Simulated scan of single mutants.
Amino acid sequence: MSALPPDPPPDRQPVTRRMPPVVPESAVPAASAPPPAVTPAGSPAAAVPPAWAPPGPTPPPRSRVVLRAGPFWGGAFATALVAALVGVVGVLVLQSILDVDLVVKDPAGVENDYLAYGLAGFVAAIAAAALLHLLVVSTPRPRAFFGWILALGIVVAALLPLTWTDDTTSALCTGLVNLLIGVAIWSLLSGVLARTTAVVTT
């Protein structure tokens, strides 16, 4: 009996390689952020104010007195003219009309009682205005300091004639004229200061 021929080998199926699926970029998870830094125990941490914390204190406003020099010195010269006239009127009433011998000091050497008192009143007013201007630009309370200085100066001017003569009547009348001149300077310059200054807040 003849041998049967071997069975033919089965047909080989073609081998197909599978490619990995393509994943879209939007589906790829982003790289995670690094973990927050941990402050080690015992180390000082910066204080972070909460969002609801009120703002810090604001510095208090500063105020200063501004002097208008032009109108001030215009008022000062007008005050000096009034003071000179007060001295002249004082000499006229007391010495020429009431026949009281005034103790007149004449440092300028004008050799006239009217001129001597008029010049003294004018110079005293200008000196007081210069003092007031200096106090305004250099002291916190110029009116108070000026009031004290001028009040004491008026008292000295009113009492000083008592040391010049033994005639009490003459000394008192001279002191009265000095007092009137001082009061006129004080009152007028105080009004001038009130009209020529302003408080500015910065």
Rank of each mutant, 00 (worst) to 15 (best):
S138H: 15
S138G: 14
S138E: 13
T139W: 15
T139F: 15
T139S: 15
T139R: 15
P140H: 11
P140E: 11
P140G: 14
R141H: 15
R141M: 13
R141N: 11
R141L: 12
P142G: 11
P142S: 14
P142Y: 10
P142T: 05
R143I: 12
R143F: 14
R143G: 14
R143P: 13
A144Q: 11
A144S: 12
F145W: 13
F146A: 07
F146S: 02
G147M: 09
G147K: 03
G147I: 03
G147R: 08
W148M: 11
W148F: 11
W148Q: 08
W148C: 07
W148G: 12
I149L: 13
I149V: 15
I149Q: 03
A151E: 00
L152F: 10
L152I: 10
L152V: 13
G153R: 03
G153W: 01
I154W: 01
I154M: 01
I154C: 01
I154E: 00
I154G: 01
V156W: 02
A157K: 09
A158V: 09
A158D: 04
L159F: 14
L159Y: 12
L160Q: 06
L160R: 07
L160F: 08
P161S: 07
P161G: 06
P161F: 03
P161M: 02
L162H: 10
L162A: 10
T163S: 00
T163M: 00
T163Q: 00
W164Y: 05
W164S: 05
W164H: 03
T165C: 02
T165F: 03
D166L: 11
D166I: 10
D167F: 08
D167E: 12
D167G: 10
T168G: 11
T168Y: 10
T169C: 01
A171T: 06
A171Y: 03
L172F: 12
C173I: 00
C173S: 08
C173L: 04
T174H: 02
T174K: 07
T174W: 02
T174N: 06
G175Q: 07
G175P: 05
V177C: 04
V177L: 07
N178K: 06
N178E: 05
L179C: 12
L179S: 13
L179I: 06
L180G: 14
L180M: 11
I181M: 09
I181T: 08
I181Q: 09
I181H: 02
G182L: 01
G182F: 01
G182C: 02
G182T: 03
G182K: 01
G182I: 01
G182D: 01
G182P: 01
V183P: 05
V183R: 00
V183H: 06
A184K: 03
I185N: 01
W186N: 02
W186Q: 02
W186M: 03
S187E: 15
S187Q: 12
S187F: 14
L188Y: 07
L188W: 05
L188N: 08
L188V: 09
L189F: 06
L189Y: 02
L189S: 06
L189G: 06
S190F: 11
S190A: 13
S190N: 15
S190M: 13
S190K: 09
S190Q: 11
G191E: 14
G191W: 13
G191Y: 09
V192L: 08
V192Q: 04
V192F: 12
L193D: 06
L193G: 09
L193N: 08
A194C: 04
A194T: 09
A194Y: 04
